[in-house]
Write a protein that binds this DNA or RNA. Structure first.
Length: 782
RNA sequence: GGGCCUAUGGUCUAGUGGUUAUGACGUCUGCCUUACACGCAGAAGGCCGGGAGUUCGAACCUCCCUGGGCCCACCA
């Protein structure tokens, strides 16, 4: 032991350097799940982090460190823990990352080549992610990492899609999409940039049916007049009060449209009346959906007006059509004025031309028919904290069928082909990974409708949530291992951030329910967001993301983890703060020095309770109470409680009161050998327990201290003991004891005495059992 | 703009009908007391965002307002 203690002689503080030394040990522990274990199973569906983020935000790392504390605590509470780690690798972010990195454009690059470049980027980025996770001792099963773009994972995504297709859950429909006419393709929201453009705001009249009144409308898109399906006015707007619910007549087209009161129309903009067209912008999409207005498409995918636009406009490009309709309106005397305004226009960031919103044929997963059931499931799910459930419930009420097809490259392919004769879809069997854009359908494929044998593959991919929403099925081996699945599904827990309730949580419940008839987990643990020091969400676009590696190198991983656990209750947002991170580091040094001191005294064999002094009994009772509280915290998946309780105990009770009380006794000054033994026994009893209780939060320092002081086997393989019964009366007495200590310190201070100086003071009757320790602590003479 | 969440000493945070309202960081004062100056002891600092209501009683329940956050949507 003397050898081990060298670390204490050489280091007065806990720091990152010592952590690095412990890292080998801490990270060499294996956490492979054993399904045949006798222990109760605790399984966690953790978010596979998205691989393209660099640097990974501190907020995200903090969340993962809390999840890790939960996994570790469950192990130490005696559970067999399934704690998988995955990487989410599909979708637009990596496509855009690769475009930037290699200075290429997705649609100008052969798909095969582009996919390879994405994969290369992902492999590099992934390495970095793993390094960060390991740097703070994330204890998932790294020997069985899953990736959402692997053949196995994509097979699951496709097979479960096929299963749902067969159950009739997949439907076709049109969906207004961002369409770049110049590029001839849909583009993602992320590929849109908004630009202030000069444009004309045209004021023109609609006649009111059965009246000689008129209504003045202002529009930047008059060419969409033929697609106008309503006019909105603000319900508060006096000018239009008597026109609400009247019918207006579209100039030129002579179609009837309703005038509807809706808060979207702003009285101060334009004329106060706005025409809703399919589709001028996304507001039109929302309003048409909300008010169930008819859709009338007048722009085709070539960017030209179609027959619905009328003979004069048909075939014209959008800009030409705008000019033409303005002069038509002017000729007919409908135009009141034309204003030149700056208009924020959505542009394709690639072609720099305005995008159009055009309905395209897409696949949907049916949601609307089971909304009641989903709400029921949501209510069954235990949510931590419970208040966040409202976000899910509210979303379920307004959610619609989920569009699942995407016109992208790096994603799981939609496993469908179409008959070249009759266009009927052909769906293959489950159990294989299909790439219809470059593969022929299975050999025996025959069109179910016309018997045709020629097919063309669907070249689309799925929305990436189609992949991640079956993570609960992947990690429980839904397709590949029946026994494993039966044992682990539904999982015990889903952990995730509040920002993806509407997506990941919602879609996971939906898909897993459709496939298994059950909720995928018993509980969902929803964390808040990591915000910067000003309280704003960290994000790359704002540039306020903080690199966790820098913080960890500076303050240490345990300090980082302790900060994350102690800063806020799960579910609350937490602000990054260097000073509080530093505070956590200070606490670890405090703990380190408590251990250094206790280590000096050596060990004592177990002793009878009868041999303990009153102070010893008190601090042991306190420790049992602390154990009870911490266990409750961990059982409730709330590391905030143990982190704060332990800090308070160590810093405000154990160190200043108990240790000071028994220091002299432990040194053996003026005490019997038995009394000395009792002190040393108790000091170690308490320290041992503190280490066990805080180990899930701070794995490095506890590993190091445990090795030196107590352990052959790693602390992380130990159990947190059940708390023993304790006597409340002695705790109350202990409170008085601490008050008395303060009183003495105060009075020494008043008398300008040093803490070592003698003092004459009466020890209260009820504190007599502590008399000997008190006298030596304060140097009391009478 | 819509929905939801939230508001506690300078900063962050616990508390959720009756407590002298918790703790941390910071500040101030005095101390290197054989573990720690990343420390010890002491102190100052809060009309629990504003207004109204429910109640014998509200930081805690209800409503309105204001600020902040998240998600969605973004100006005809």
């Amino acid at each position: 032991m003397a050898e081990d203690s060298k670390i204490f002689e050489e280091n007065k503080n806990w720091d990152r350097r010592l952590e690095k030394e412990a890292e080998k040990k801490v990270n060499s522990l294996k956490w492979t799940f054993s399904p045949s274990s006798e222990k109760k199973i605790f399984s966690i569906d953790t978010p596979p982090p998205y691989t393209s983020g660099r640097p990974w935000h501190l907020g995200a790392a903090a969340q993962y460190s809390k999840i890790d504390a939960i996994a570790r605590s469950q192990r130490m509470l005696g559970k067999e823990v399934l704690f998988p780690v995955g990487m989410d690798r599909n979708g637009i972010p990596v496509e855009r990352y690769a475009e930037k990195k290699y200075d290429i454009k997705m649609r100008d690059t052969p798909r095969d080549k582009f996919i390879d470049l994405c994969r290369e980027s992902l492999d590099e980025l992934e390495k970095e992610m793993f390094e960060i996770l390991r740097s703070f001792a994330y204890s998932a099963d790294f020997e069985n990492v899953y990736r959402t773009d692997s053949v196995e994972y994509r097979t699951l995504t496709q097979s479960t899609f096929i299963e749902m297709w067969k159950k009739g859950k997949i439907i076709r429909g049109t969906r207004p999409s961002n369409y770049c006419i110049d590029c001839g393709t849909t583009i993602a929201d992320a590929e849109i940039e908004y630009k202030e453009m000069d444009t004309n705001l045209v004021y023109f009249y609609f006649n009111i049916k059965g009246s000689d009144k008129k209504i003045l409308v202002a529009s930047t898109r008059p060419e969409l007049l033929g697609a106008c399906s309503a006019i909105l006015v603000n319900p508060e707007d006096e000018r239009f009060r008597d026109l609400i619910n009247k019918t207006a007549i579209t100039p030129i087209y002579n179609k009837e449209v309703k005038i509807i009161a809706h808060s979207y129309a702003k009285a101060e903009f334009g004329s106060g009346a706005v025409m809703i067209c399919s589709y001028g912008d996304y507001n039109d999409v929302m309003i048409i959906k909300e008010l169930k207005l008819p859709e009338n498409i007048i722009i085709d995918t070539n960017g030209r007006m179609n027959e619905n636009a009328g003979e004069k406009l048909k075939g014209l490009k959008v800009k030409e059509a705008r000019k033409e309709i303005i002069s038509m309106l002017q000729e007919a005397g409908y135009v009141e004025k034309i204003e030149n305004i700056q208009h924020r226009t959505p542009m394709c960031e690639r072609s720099k031309t305005p995008i159009e919103i055009i309905p395209l044929d897409e696949y949907y997963l049916k949601v609307t028919d089971i909304k009641d059931k989903l709400e029921e499931l949501a209510n069954e799910l235990t949510m931590i904290p419970e208040q966040h459930k409202q976000i899910l419930i509210n979303w379920l009420k307004v959610s619609t069928d989920w569009p699942i097809s995407r016109r992208r490259y790096y994603g799981t392919e939609i496993p469908l082909w179409y008959c070249t004769k009759c266009n009927e879809p052909y769906i293959p069997e489950e159990g294989r990974y299909y790439q219809p854009w470059k593969e022929k359908p299975p050999q025996n494929a025959v069109c179910t409708k016309c018997g045709g044998r020629e097919f063309i593959g669907d070249d689309r991919t799925f929305d990436t949530w189609m992949d991640s929403s079956v993570s609960a099925l992947y990690v429980t081996k839904y397709l590949s291992d029946k026994d494993f699945y039966e044992k682990t599904y539904p999982l015990s827990l889903r952990t995730q951030g509040i920002d993806i309730i509407r997506t990941w949580l919602n879609y996971s419940i939906l898909r897993c329910y459709l496939l298994t008839d059950k909720l995928p987990w018993e509980k969902a643990w929803i964390d808040g967001m990591g915000l910067d020091e000003h309280g704003e969400k960290m994000s790359k676009s704002k540039g306020n993301g903080i690199d966790p590696t820098i913080v960890i190198d500076k303050y240490g991983a345990d300090a980082f983890r302790f900060w994350a656990a102690s800063e806020a209750l799960p579910g609350s947002n937490f602000l990054f703060s260097e000073s509080r991170m530093q505070g956590s580091a200070k606490f670890l040094t405090k703990l380190w020095n408590v251990a250094r001191l206790i280590n000096q005294f050596g060990k004592s064999e177990d002793i009878n309770e009868a041999e303990l002094n009153e102070s010893d009994k008190w601090i042991i009772a306190y420790t049992e109470k602390l154990t009870e509280e911490c266990r409750k915290g961990y059982e409730g998946l709330n590391p905030f409680i143990p982190a704060n309780k332990i800090r308070e105990f160590v810093w405000n009770v154990f160190a200043p009161h108990y240790i000071e009380l028994v220091k002299a006794r432990a040194y053996g000054e003026n005490f019997s050998e038995n009394e000395k033994k009792a002190a040393i026994y108790t000091l170690n009893y308490v320290l041992n327990r503190i280490l066990l209780l805080i180990a899930p939060v701070t794995p490095f320092i506890t590993q190091t201290l445990w090795d030196v002081l107590y352990g052959k086997e790693s602390i992380h393989y130990q159990r947190i003991p059940e708390s023993k019964k304790y006597d409340d009366a002695i705790l109350l007495l202990g409170d008085k004891l601490m008050e008395f200590n303060s009183k003495i310190w105060n009075s020494k201070k008043e008398k300008k005495l040093s803490l070592r100086d003698e003092i004459k003071i009466e020890i209260p009757q009820d504190l007599k059992p502590f008399e000997k320790d008190l006298k030596s602590m304060h140097n009391i003479i009478n």
